[in-house]
Amino acid sequence: MVYAFLLPSLPVLGGYLYTYTLYKRGLIRKTLHVNFWNFLIGVSFLISGGGGFLLLIAMELGIVLPLSPEMFYWHVELGISMILITLFHFHCYWKSALEMVFLKSRRDRT
């Protein structure tokens, strides 16, 4: 079994660049761009993270769900997408992320 890396990541990368360009050119509001990607990270989390968590609990209980192999496959593929979407989430909240890591707020730095 070979997992595809490009298939789940290229559409995500292209989609982000597309909405980012639309926002930068003033065609859509920033809230729409940010919320759209927040929604996508939620969906990918539900499928990849939620599916993985379900598999883990089933494994701990010794249960093999009828959809376990399919769930495992999509857990991996959507996980690859989620990595990129998580990076975009950091990009959207870049200033807050910097504050989180370096403690200093924007007001303190000025």
């Binding site: 079994m1 598999l55 494994m59 093999v64 769900l65 009828p66 376990s68 192999p69 495992f72 496959y73």
Partner: peptide, 21 residues
């Protein structure tokens, strides 16, 4: 599927070839 590999593959895979899923 679950019957054939109960207690085997935790993900319910059947005859998973090298290198494995």
């Amino acid at each position: 599927m679950s019957d054939s590999c109960a207690g085997g593959c935790p993900y319910g895979l059947v005859n998973d070839p090298f290198p494995g899923q």
